[in-house]
């Protein structure tokens, strides 16, 4: 049956090279996740190695969640939150921003390049931006290759 929906491979994204790479996108329910809905409705595709995880707010993303992603083998972590001033809970996104600033040097010190972690502000109406940001982030991860922590048997 032809549903008219083109699969990502057919849309011109070469997924074979992404196969072993994992990108986790931790996204805010009120903006980026809604933008992902919009992107879906508009039939915009984002790279297949990206998995979205919905949070009620980027302010609830403890540094531990980010570390957990990397130690469990993620090659990149993308965080999508509301534009400053638009947070549903007033300052959650600003909390996320300062935490990410604080965790970058820690990641870099232990051999996780800071480019593997990206924060973007994506409003609910910016389905297109979601697609662009995820695609460009996936490309960066692809260039960096698998993370040093992937598949490690950590104590």
């Amino acid at each position: 049956m032809n549903t008219g929906i083109s699969r990502p491979e057919e849309a011109g994204t070469d997924n074979s090279r992404h196969k072993e790479l994992d990108v986790l996108a931790l996204v805010c329910n009120w903006c980026t996740y809604t933008a992902a809905d919009l992107a879906g409705v508009t039939r915009l595709h984002y790279p297949a190695q990206v998995r979205l995880i919905r949070f009620m707010c980027t302010g609830m993303i403890d540094m531990r969640y980010i570390l957990s992603c990397f130690l469990d083998g993620a090659d990149g972590v993308f965080i999508g939150g509301c534009h400053p001033g638009d947070c549903h809970y007033l300052t959650g996104n600003l909390k996320a921003r300062v935490r990410i600033k604080g965790i970058r040097p820690v990641l870099e010190s232990v051999g996780i390049p800071p480019q593997r972690l990206r924060l973007e502000w994506i409003g609910a109406s910016e389905g297109k931006k979601l697609q662009e940001d995820l695609t460009s982030f996936a490309r960066v991860i692809e260039q960096l290759g698998p993370s040093d922590y992937k598949g490690m048997n950590l104590v």
Partner: peptide, 24 residues
């Protein structure tokens, strides 16, 4: 996945969490 796991597990996570939370 990793060919057995040492217990107590999660010590890398513990040290990195403390670094992330308290390095400042």
């Amino acid at each position: 996945r990793t060919g057995g796991i040492r217990l107590p597990a999660g010590m890398t996570m513990f040290h990195l969490t403390r670094l992330a939370h308290m390095a400042h």
